[in-house]
Design a protein around this nucleic acid. Structure first.
Length: 298
DNA sequence: CCCCAGGGCCATA
DNA sequence: TATGGCCATGGG
């Protein structure tokens, strides 16, 4: 028997739920959440019990609703925690907007994407797999590959005629036959990379807590890059999206390159040095600038 | 057949 | 550490 519970979160300054929805609705049809008018819903594991988390805007508040068997107070706390992390709700963007406004090339972004938050991927294993899937292929195709994997191996729950999925756990992914993944359009290299990541998690050598507990960003970066299949792009992407490191730049990223080309009205992709120059005024906000530049591609 | 896509590996200098 | 060739897969 399903029950529901709700919590209201007050909406902070410089936060726009509409911008979150616009970002989530870029047209890639992500299989890990479901969009309806002014509402996002996704599956969540509450200590192993599946339930839905649904977010919508209600009179100056964000309403977080949980739907599962016997919703408890702890479930609601977990759900709110997840949403706050997913949407980066508690970050004060004032300084970032001041920096944007100071830069004549980037000034328009603070208005164009006002209240836009860096939507994250809280689960580290999911973030790593997703980054590996997305290496060097177009995003639309990457989302299709992810969908094949998730719909076949992720836990699922059907509610009101819609099936919601969770990203599969490492213990499940590592058992998948190589030929099955090949049919899902994983390249042989990516199969190798993802299985290595699975092994790290299963052996308890890597998880979010261990990574966070390292001394600083440099150590976290090297811990990731030392894993075969994780290069500078993947490490920066994951530190940005999952660990919410604010100083990441996705060097080598074709999207970032294209955004900067558009911005500077240039035909050739920027060098790392030119990227550093552009980002130099945004110390400790590199990840946000990176994210906002991506958004200009929509 | 070509080039591109939110790259990584490895050898070489 | 920086560059460049090669790998890999589907889209356009």
């Amino acid at each position: 028997m399903k029950t529901t519970g709700e919590v209201l979160i007050s909406i902070p300054e410089n936060f726009s739920f509409q911008e979150i929805l616009t970002f989530l609705d870029r047209g890639f049809d992500d299989c890990l959440y479901h969009l309806e008018e002014n509402k996002v819903t996704r599956l969540f594991s509450f200590n192993g019990e599946l339930g839905l988390i649904s977010i919508s805007e209600k009179n100056e508040f964000l309403e977080v609703k949980v739907i599962k068997d016997k919703v408890t107070k702890e479930d609601l706390i977990e759900a709110v925690k997840f949403v706050e992390e997913w949407f980066d709700i508690h970050r004060d963007l004032t300084t970032f907007y001041q920096l944007l406004d100071k830069n004549h090339q980037l000034r328009s972004l603070s208005e164009q994407f006002n209240g836009s938050r860096l939507v994250g991927i809280p689960d580290l294993f999911e973030a790593l797999c997703w980054a590996i899937i997305g290496q060097q292929i177009n995003l639309k195709f990457a989302y299709q590959v992810k969908r094949s994997l998730v719909e076949e191996y992720g836990e699922k729950l059907e509610v009101e005629n819609h099936i919601y999925y969770l990203f599969p756990r490492p213990e499940v992914v590592i058992e998948i036959d190589e030929e099955v993944l090949r049919k899902m359009k994983f390249s042989r290299q990516k199969i190798t990379y993802i299985k290595i990541v699975c092994r790290e998690f299963i052996d308890g050598k890597l998880n979010k807590k261990l990574l966070i507990n390292l001394k600083n960003k440099q150590e976290r970066y090297h811990r990731l890059v030392d894993i075969k299949g994780i290069g500078k792009w993947t490490a920066n992407y994951v530190l940005m999206k999952s660990l919410r490191d604010m100083t990441c730049i996705t060097y080598g990223d074709s999207g970032l390159n294209n955004a900067i080309k558009m911005l500077q009205n240039s035909k050739i992709k920027p060098t790392n040095e030119e990227i550093d120059t552009l980002f130099s005024e945004f110390k400790n906000w590199e990840s946000y600038l990176n994210f906002y530049l991506w958004r200009t591609l929509e």
